[in-house]
Simulated assay, not measured.
Amino acid sequence: MTNDSLAAKPHYPLLDGLRGVAAIIVVTFHLTEPLGTGHLDILVNHGYLAVDFFFLLSGFVIGYAYDDRWQTMTIGTFFKRRIERLQPMVVLGMLLGALGFYFTDSTIWPLIHTVPLWKLLLVLLIGCTILPVPLSLDIRGWQEMHPLNSVGWSLFFEYLANILYALGIRKFSNTALGILVLLAAVALAQLAITSPAGDVSGGWTLNAEQVRVGITRTMYPFFAGLLLSRIAKPTRLKHALLGCSLLLALVLYMPRLGGAERVWLNGVYEAVAIILIFPLIVYLGASGVVQTQAEGRICKFLGQLSYPLYLVHYPLVYFYVAWISNHKGVTLAQAWPYASVILAGGIALAYASLKWYDEPVRRWLQTKLG
């Protein structure tokens, strides 16, 4: 989900570009989701799998950036670097969610105007730590572990994966890591194929069932990415940015499979996508070469934009969801102008957040934390 500094190492600019493509697709998923009636008819039906792609990218980047540095780096240094990279945008995302909380007036959130200010501030404080909010503090009514900014749940599991890596899994041999990845793949396939909805969607509620979903969705892709960073021998491919972007978009925009009668078919599709196709895309992206300066600038822009866009877009989406819920029967033709404004506004807000907040704060933290 993020891109660490890979100073003194060759960089993978196309992976930055793919991260940005996935982030934009996530926004389009969240903009089409409220227009559907359920799992079966969302226009961007598999957009939520971008999170699993982010986890795999993160594992790859973490392994590439840190695996060979542990003889000169402490666990404390590793965590400081991760906090410097992840936490500033987490805080801003939660603040934006809090600022808009009372203004997203809708019948789907009847709790909002009964929430006292002290409870909102408490949820904000907890959210800024990325620790999950207990259900007793569910101030929106959607059973989200981060009701001010829904996407925070994936950052919680991202931190968990980083902790597991730093405290022990980084020491695994490739064989041991391969066994862990294989077991995690089996667990992921079992979840996808046997879940009542026939998909892996979930992980954002603080209860046993949903935490299991979140852990299962994190363990395979993150540590498969780590293993891939160790064993892959990238080649040199032309046109990889376009090809990988199209393949990623095809996977995420694929319509629902199997219908209501054979939901397991969709689970098979999602398991294959996460376990096989996403590692292939990352490998091809790592093998790709930037062919023009324009392509390099595109990759850089998309990479810089991806994490801020992921963290700031959902507070805007809350307003959009409220508008749709207050105008029953809204069609895609009626919604797309508003959705386009949210998408463009999210991109502009993300870029402004990057330049005026994220980068300056990270520089300040680096001087303070060392």
Rank of each mutant, 00 (worst) to 15 (best):
T2I: 15
N3R: 07
S5V: 06
L6T: 12
K9A: 05
L14T: 00
G17C: 09
G17M: 05
V21F: 05
A22C: 15
V26W: 02
F29R: 01
L31G: 04
T32A: 10
G36Q: 01
G36E: 00
G36A: 00
L40D: 04
L43G: 05
L43S: 04
H46M: 09
G47A: 11
G47V: 06
Y48E: 00
Y48T: 00
Y48Q: 02
F54C: 14
L57F: 05
V61I: 15
Y66Q: 06
M73C: 13
T74Y: 08
G76R: 08
F78S: 03
F79H: 12
F79D: 11
L86M: 12
L86I: 15
Q87F: 14
Q87Y: 13
V91R: 04
L99P: 10
G100F: 08
G100M: 09
Y102S: 02
F103M: 08
P110K: 08
T114A: 13
W118L: 14
L120Y: 05
V123S: 06
I130S: 11
P132T: 15
S136T: 07
S136I: 12
I139L: 10
I139P: 00
G141C: 04
G141L: 04
H146D: 11
L148Y: 03
N149M: 12
L155K: 02
L155G: 02
Y159S: 11
Y159D: 14
N162Q: 09
I163N: 05
Y165Q: 07
I169R: 07
A176T: 05
L177T: 01
L182N: 00
V186P: 13
L188W: 06
A189H: 12
T194R: 12
P196R: 09
A197I: 09
S201C: 09
T205A: 15
T205V: 15
E209A: 15
E209Q: 11
G214R: 06
T216I: 14
T216L: 10
R217H: 14
R217L: 14
T218E: 06
M219V: 14
P221S: 11
F223V: 07
A224H: 01
A224G: 06
L226S: 06
L227N: 00
K233S: 14
L237R: 13
H239M: 12
A240T: 01
L242D: 12
L242F: 15
L250C: 10
L252Y: 03
R256D: 03
L257T: 02
G258M: 10
E261Y: 10
G267L: 10
V268Q: 06
V272D: 03
V272W: 01
I274W: 01
I274R: 00
L276P: 09
F278R: 02
P279I: 05
Y283Q: 08
G285C: 06
G285H: 02
S287T: 10
Q291I: 10
Q291F: 14
Q293A: 13
G296V: 03
I298W: 02
K300E: 07
F301R: 08
L302C: 02
G303S: 05
Q304E: 04
P308K: 03
L311P: 01
L311Q: 00
Y314E: 01
V321S: 13
A322P: 13
A333M: 11
Q334S: 11
A335S: 06
A335N: 03
W336D: 13
P337A: 11
P337C: 11
G345D: 03
Y351E: 08
A352C: 14
L354V: 02
K355T: 02
E359Y: 06
V361W: 03
R363L: 08
Q366W: 07
